[in-house]
Nucleic acid binder design. Structure first.
Length: 564
RNA sequence: GCGCCCGUAGCUCAGCUGGAUAGAGCAGCGGACUUCUAAUCCGCAGGCCACAGGUUCGAAUCCUGUCGGGCGUACCA
């Protein structure tokens, strides 16, 4: 099967060998003749700009270089019908109609997956995301990360990776203690006690509900002084429950919730031992300062040394985080993906530096990929809202989904922006936006196609079972070709999105597909009982489009409805 | 102060491993439903790509600086 990816590879190889056969040694070893999609149909379907980049190297003008390259292209590449030299020196290629139609046929019959390059080849990837500590419900900020992580996981799976989704949380630190103490305060104050939420504690109303649940279960009489573990465990359980229910609203299921306490007891001490045995410029990586233990991050190229063990003997959170990452590496994954908010950037760099020092720079840079996303700023009535779980001021995931109308709308909205872009989210506009949301535009295209397929079924017309050149001869019209060209580029673009781990590109592709189909629909009649062969051929394009849309929406975790 | 991210149409954002006239959605204006779903399509209008330099045959894209916004700069996570 000639796939869009293979076609481009062969074309690039052909161009490269042609360049080498002409100029030989003058060409740098790493020279690549890239082929990309033409952004304007007038310039053909694919375009190569190697000639312009070679101009300086071989001392000739780009147009003449382009001519020589094209002339030397050995045999014509399967699927390419013609080329031309245009503009300053672009080599433009036109794709054969038969090839375009065959790709559409493959899409219609087997969906997107078989046409995607098998980059992962069954290797194992671990994706860590959300990883919010159990201190309260998931908020708008977590939502972006959850959706990002889930879609990246799906995208990796689409390109052949076996993905494990993991949620890491800290169940041993002082935050959990504070949470327990905050619960105790609510519990006791309901009994008329004077206790108030502790300094730095959690003020959210949800803790009041937990307190009454706790009384229902344990009655009265518990005190923070004598039963701290009861409060802590209850609070943690409740918080995890809230988090899980939030995630289920988004349709997200983790393969594993990894608690810090699950790290074997020696994991952290062993890590410290290993770090202690390392010296950089005759200085130990670990040093003590009276009662505290420091890690010399500055020796690893980081801006500041950090405390790793406090005076009371407890670890600061970088330490277990390093140990946890070592654990991940020891589990023999081929790819380890961390998804973090911008506030974790600095820490993540520290952890990476420590890992590079312990495992070797090559191993870490080969396996570890960190995706950092910027924050979501909530805007209400024109002004920004500062969110904080601790102060109890936040908008939950659930409220957000209710406001936006559905989980699908919410997910799609978050995925239209790239991770590094800051996001303003106007709550007041959420509802208004949702009725004119791009997701409906895409879903509507899908529903329209489903409608055509139903109608065709009633008329006894179906997509051909086998591909033949006769089919492509029926698809010569302007709108057919436009749609086929679009469909042909989808697998390549999806593969690129997967390699870059940039899910927002999928929403771009979807919007293009929907636009392409709506245009096609507007101008071309599909079901026509007087032209059954033509109908069947056009139906094939509809089927290809439908599969592409539903497969892509599937990767985003968004529903592809048959009726709207 | 220092580090990272961002600054593109009225609004929300794509485009950023340099390339052929800078794109989309929404908002605005004007057209298209006896025909497979008008949640659609077609057209018009809208831009010193924050600003100033630099590299290049060629810059929204790369480099430097300035301004503006976000995040971090904890013995919180």
């Amino acid at each position: 099967m000639m796939t869009p990816g293979l076609l481009r590879n062969e074309l690039e190889r052909g161009l490269q060998s042609s360049v080498r056969s002409i100029w030989g040694e003058a060409i740098p070893a790493d020279f690549r003749a890239d082929v990309s999609a033409s952004d304007n149909l007038e310039f053909g379907d694919l375009s190569c700009q190697a000639a312009m980049r070679l101009a300086g190297i071989v001392k000739d003008n780009p147009r003449s270089i382009a001519g020589r390259i094209a002339e030397a292209m050995a045999d014509s590449i399967e699927g390419i019908s013609s080329f031309s030299i245009d503009g300053p020196g672009f080599i433009n290629f036109r794709l054969k109609n038969g090839y375009l139609a065959s790709v559409a046929f493959d899409l219609a019959s087997g969906g997107l997956q078989p046409l995607l390059p098998d980059t992962g080849a069954g290797r194992n990837a671990l994706v860590e995301y959300v990883s919010s500590n159990p201190t309260g419900p998931l908020t708008v900020g977590h939502c972006r990360q959850a959706v990002l992580g889930e879609t990246i996981s799906n995208l990796l799976e689409a390109s052949g990776w076996t993905v494990s989704r993991e949620y890491y949380f800290n169940d041993a630190g002082r935050q959990i203690n504070l949470l327990g103490e905050s619960l105790a305060a609510r519990y006791l104050s309901a009994e008329g006690g004077e206790t108030s939420v502790p300094e730095g504690g959690y003020h959210g109303d949800y803790i009041i509900d937990w307190a009454s649940d706790l009384r229902a279960l344990h009655g009265t009489g518990l005190t923070w002084a004598s039963d701290p573990d009861t409060f802590i465990h209850f609070a943690e359980e409740k918080a995890m429950e809230m988090i899980r229910s939030g995630l289920s609203l988004l349709g997200i299921e983790f393969d594993r919730y990894f608690a810090e306490s699950e790290l074997i007891p020696e994991a952290v001490t062993d890590t410290i031992k290993r770090l202690s045995s390392i010296t950089v410029d005759d200085m130990s990586l670990v040093y003590s300062d009276s009662e505290k233990l420091w890690l010399r991050f500055t020796a690893l190229g980081r801006p500041k040394d950090r405390v790793i063990i406090r005076e009371d003997g407890t670890y600061t959170y970088r330490m277990p985080d390093i140990a946890y990452h070592l654990d991940k590496f020891s589990r023999k994954y081929d790819l380890i993906v961390d998804i973090f908010g911008a506030d974790h950037l600095d820490t993540s760099r520290d952890v990476t530096a420590a890992l590079e020092c312990l495992l070797g720079r090559e191993v870490v840079s080969e396996k570890l990929r960190v995706v950092i996303h910027q924050f979501v700023t909530l805007v209400k009535d024109g002004s920004r809202i500062k969110m904080s779980t601790r102060s109890g001021e936040f908008v939950t995931l659930r409220e957000l989904i209710n406001d936006a109308g559905s989980a699908d709308v919410t997910k799609y909205l978050f995925l239209t922006r790239r991770a590094e872009a800051h996001m303003d989210f106007d709550l007041g506009l959420a509802k208004k936006q949702s009725s004119e949301n791009p997701v409906y535009y895409v879903q509507y295209a899908h529903a329209r196609i489903a409608g055509i397929l139903r109608r065709a079924g009633e008329a006894g017309i179906s997509i051909p079972n086998e591909f033949s050149s006769g089919i492509s001869k029926l698809l010569q019209g302007e709108y057919e070709r436009e749609l086929m060209r679009l469909l042909e580029s989808v697998p390549v673009d999806v593969a690129a999105a997967s390699d870059a781990m940039e899910p927002h590109r999928l929403t771009e592709i979807l919007a293009e597909l929907a636009t392409g189909f709506h245009r096609f629909y507007q101008h071309v009649r599909v079901v026509d009982t007087d032209n059954r062969n033509l109908s069947a051929a056009r139906l094939m394009l509809c089927g290809a489009c439908r599969r592409c849309i539903s497969d892509l929406l599937g990767i985003l975790g968004v529903d592809a409805p048959d009726r709207m």
